[in-house]
Amino acid sequence: MKFGILVNEGPFTHQASDSAYRFVLAALEKGHEIYRVFFYHDGVNNANKLSEPQSDDRDLVKLWSALGTEREIDLVVCVAAALRRGVKDDILAEGFRISGLGQLIEAGVESDRLVVFGD
């Protein structure tokens, strides 16, 4: 089955990004396809490669980035939400790309299920 995932919160204040990441891993494990992960609202902060969590903490930016590069999952950051928050191409972690909200709607159209994680 094809999944679209929407992540509405950043990597630190809320559990949303963790839950979404665990869900994606479990879905891949079961042989499902992740059509796209779309990051909106403060979720765009998941793509900020300048973030430096403490060494004993999980690093969601790196974890997502690895999924994007190693498993070729399409990680899309909403351009309007990103610009507001200063997330631009030069601080974008590898594996993410910045694009429009249309990519979220497209994920809704093309996926069998769209699962939303947020606050």
Partner: peptide, 18 residues
């Protein structure tokens, strides 16, 4: 989490009450 995935597959849609 695997069971969470299975639930989304078994049900035809999902809605998050954020």
């Amino acid at each position: 989490y695997g069971g969470f995935v299975d639930l989304t597959v078994e049900q035809d849609t999902c809605q998050s009450w954020l």
